[in-house]
Structure formats: structure tokens, C-alpha cells
């Protein structure tokens, strides 16, 4: 379903962040991407939904090369790709419901969106999703009054509201305290299981990756150096993935997820 071939990306004239990356996922499972800061994890996800433009290569979703799309075609592809952000990226001053319904903006007409007149089935689905993430009591609360964990739940609901073919999550738990972080991971894993969605998730936390993911990719300096099952991720591999980032490495070697603190 998602096929990335020889993807290259550099910012300005600097060292390339992605150096000819290849990746295929068509299985409906959770794929975690690990790697130290600056390895290119975020850039990879952002290239997929074109929040940043790639330099060369191909990203095909159901056979359509996303890098060739413009205007409305790009919007129609974007709406099939849900994204959850590290900083939640909700609109602070809008209500929870508006943020969730924003997930339908790629589908409804412009005027309906701007006037907040969404079709009844969208509103019903938004209520159902808010119930699923446990926030149905906050429908009309402004997002800037919510806690970090609650905001990320809204972020999940917004992404799912798109009825996505695939879900991208860019370090969705990195801004949260360890307990909340676990809950959000459980939520994402649970929902994707229920909805039968493939998920690409960047994680800074290896124990979380091995706990929740079905497949793990190790990214180092813009090159995929590990691709395998969580069980195959030995300490040797971790050392290769995180070599030169000793602090990151030490953190990852402590395996018990409960003892991880992220900040």
C-alpha cells in the first residue's frame, strides 16, 4: 500500500537527512521507527504527507506517487493519511469538537467547513470517537484548557476522523509524562487494531517500540539499517543504531518501560 523508493531529502545545502530510503508496508500492523535525534525520523513522516517537500524518489500510496501531486489531488491524498504530532498541533483556541471535525475538512465543501456545518454522520462519528478516546465530556471545551494527555487524545480523534488509509505518528508520546505516555501508546495500538489500520510511528523510546510494535525500523543518518521483528532487536543492533549518541543509547538500554522517563 505504501511504497517508498530511493527517497532523498536535504534541507538547504546541508548534509542530506534522508539518503535514498526504501520502505514498503502493506501489512495492517504497527511499524515503529527508532533512531537518535537527527536520524531523519520526523523528516521521513513529513515527506509522506508532504508537510516538507522531498528532493527525489517516490512515495506511492496505492500506486499513486504522492510527490507528483498538486492542489486538490494532494489534498485528496492527504486526507487519507492521518497524522498525530509530538506537539499535538491542535488549534488551541478552538473547541475539542471543532478540532476533531477538522479531520473532515478534506472531505466537506469549503463553505460547510468554514461555517462549521458538517454532515450529520460526521458529527455522529466525532461523538463516537470522542467517546472512544474518553473525552466525550469535553466536547465544547477549548483545547488550551486540556492537559497534554487529553490533547493527544483529541489529536488521535482528529486523525481518525479522516477515515485514513494509513496513520502516521511523529513521537506522539515524547511530550508526555511516562504514565500518560503509556496510556496514549495503548490507545493508539488499540484503535489501530480495532480499525485495522497500518501505522508508522516514530518513537524515542525503544522499550515502548518493542512492546507495541509488530515491526521495527532502525534509522541512522538517513539510512535504514535495521528492519525486523521486535525480538530481533538485540543490544548489538541498538548500539549500531545509536552509536555516537551515548546518552540516547544508555537511556534505551534500560528496558523496563515503567522506569523510562522521557524528559
Amino acid at each position: 500500500m505504501l511504497k517508498i523508493t530511493d527517497l532523498k531529502k536535504s534541507y538547504g545545502k546541508g548534509e542530506p537527512v534522508l539518503k535514498g530510503l526504501n520502505l514498503t508496508t502493506d501489512e495492517r500492523r504497527l511499524t515503529a521507527i527508532i533512531g537518535s535525534s537527527g536520524a531523519g525520523k520526523s523528516t521521513l513522516l513529513r515527506c509522506i504527507n508532504r508537510l516538507v517537500p522531498a528532493n527525489s524518489g517516490k512515495i506511492e500510496l496505492d500506486g499513486v506517487n504522492i510527490l507528483d501531486l498538486h492542489g486538490q489531488q494532494l489534498q485528496h491524498t492527504r486526507r487519507q493519511i492521518g497524522m498525530i504530532f509530538q506537539a499535538y498541533n491542535l488549534v488551541d483556541r478552538l473547541t475539542v469538537m471543532e478540532n476533531v471535525l477538522a479531520g473532515r475538512l478534506g472531505y466537506v465543501g469549503m463553505l460547510r467547513g468554514i461555517l462549521r456545518r458538517f454532515p450529520q454522520e460526521d458529527v455522529d462519528r466525532a461523538y463516537a470517537l470522542l467517546q472512544r478516546v474518553g473525552l466525550s465530556q469535553y466536547v465544547n471545551k477549548r483545547c488550551d484548557t486540556l492537559s497534554g494527555g487529553e490533547r493527544q487524545r483529541v489529536g488521535c480523534a482528529r486523525a481518525l476522523m479522516q477515515n485514513p488509509r494509513i496513520l502516521l505518528a511523529d513521537e506522539p508520546t515524547a511530550s508526555l509524562d511516562p504514565k500518560t505516555s503509556e496510556r496514549i501508546m495503548e490507545l493508539i495500538a488499540g484503535i489501530t487494531d480495532e480499525l485495522d489500520l497500518p501505522v508508522l510511528i516514530n518513537l524515542h523510546n525503544v522499550p515502548q517500540a518493542t512492546t507495541y510494535a509488530d515491526r521495527i525500523l532502525g534509522l541512522r543518518h538517513g539510512v535504514m539499517i535495521f528492519d525486523g521483528n521486535p525480538g530481533d532487536l538485540t543490544e548489538d543492533w541498538l548500539e549500531k543504531i545509536y552509536a555516537g549518541y551515548e546518552d540516547d543509547l544508555k537511556k534505551q538500554m534500560r528496558v523496563a518501560p515503567q522506569e523510562q522517563d522521557d524528559e
Binding site: N49, L51, Q72, Q75, H76, T77, R78, R79, Q80, I81, M83, F85, A87, Y88, N89, L90, V91, D92, R93, L94, E98, A102, G103, R104, L105, G106, Y107, M110, G113, I114, G155, R158, M161, Q162
Partner: peptide
């Protein structure tokens, strides 16, 4: 970030302005 969040849903130009930009400048 708020603009990115709305843009990633596939929203068009005016909906992005209406959802992500306008609420931020309204006060």
C-alpha cells in the same frame, strides 16, 4: 504547528486560514 495540523487533514487553503490562522489572531 497548528497550521500543519490542519493542513495534514487535507484541508484546502481557505479552511486552513479559517481553522488554524484566524482563531490565533482573533483576540
Amino acid at each position: 504547528g497548528q497550521v500543519e495540523g490542519i493542513r495534514s487533514t487535507g484541508a484546502g487553503y481557505l479552511p486552513v486560514l479559517s481553522y488554524a490562522v484566524f482563531p490565533q489572531i482573533l483576540p
